[in-house]
């Protein structure tokens, strides 16, 4: 596990400065960090894509930005119909787990492997998706757990993985100025690209890429290298915060009314 990380970091340090500059100017350009108004053009070169080896994008981000290892970005992992989620990080034993929806805080710039099992909708099925976290949020202090990055697995993801195919999904943070009223993460807007196209570049055009999710039919074996289980970032399972989007529609409606009344009461004060 440690050797793998050392090798990864050495590779990252050996990346020429030109590639680093291209990366900064491309995926993490100032227009991404400091806001943009219109989608950017495709004029610049994108050295990375969803076809890059798992962990390469995160390692490059970590090498360039030198992420704070004490900062843990919460992730909210959702499995359709619920299920057991175990988190691996550079070792063949899980470092944490829980039942979906699960809130787990991890280091940025690393790859993690999940084991999803015990799904009532898919009895006896196990899938091992991976999460490559390449960026993080900057929420108000003490409110980090309220704003996790959603890792949502859909029925289609599980069906594709079961059939042996690979689904690569790039989670990005929307640019509010070019956002639409429909929610893209909840599949209200189909955002799929052809396998030959660069999904990372498309995500960068629409916002700030945050994570790369790979859901496939690959399973670990006794000879699986430690890199299969991730790159060894810190993992901390936290108590899940119930999000109203995960509740049944009736419950969501009641909660919304309650919020309205509370706000009105505050205003009258």
């Amino acid at each position: 596990m440690t050797d793998q990380r050392i090798n990864c970091s050495e590779i990252c340090r050996s990346v020429p400065s030109l590639l680093a500059a291209l990366l900064i100017g491309g995926i993490l350009s100032p227009a991404t960090v400091f806001g943009q108004i219109q989608p950017r053009s495709d004029a610049y070169h994108q050295p990375l894509s969803q076809h890059s080896p798992p962990g390469q994008t995160a390692a490059w981000m970590n090498a360039i930005r030198n992420y704070d290892m004490t900062w843990l970005q919460p992730l909210q992992i959702e499995v359709p119909g619920g299920g057991q989620v175990d988190v691996y990080s550079g070792y063949n034993h899980p470092v944490g787990g829980g039942y979906s929806p699960m809130l787990v805080a991890v280091n940025v710039g690393h790859v993690y492997r999940l084991r999803v099992s015990g799904m009532p909708k898919y009895p006896g099925l196990e899938i091992y998706p991976s999460i490559e976290l390449i960026d993080h949020l900057h929420p108000p202090a003490g409110r980090e757990n309220e704003f996790p990055i959603p890792i949502i697995l859909t029925d289609r993801d599980i069906q594709i993985a079961e059939s042996g195919q690979l689904v690569t999904r790039v989670i990005y943070l929307e640019q509010p100025q070019i956002a639409q009223q429909l929610n893209p993460l909840r599949r209200e807007i189909p955002q799929a690209v052809e396998p030959k196209d660069n999904a990372l570049q498309e995500a960068d055009r629409l916002g700030r890429p945050m994570a790369i999710i790979r859901v496939g039919g690959r399973r670990p074996s006794t000879n699986s290298p430690p890199a299969f289980f991730g790159t060894g970032g810190h993992v901390e399972v936290r108590p899940a915060v119930i999000n109203e989007t995960m509740l049944p529609p009736g419950s969501v409606k009641m909660q919304k009314r309650a919020v309205v009344r509370n706000v009105s009461h505050e205003i009258r004060k």
Partner: peptide, 8 residues
């Protein structure tokens, strides 16, 4: 708010 671009 987040979005997702996927490919299979």
């Amino acid at each position: 708010r987040f979005g997702a671009v996927e490919t299979a």
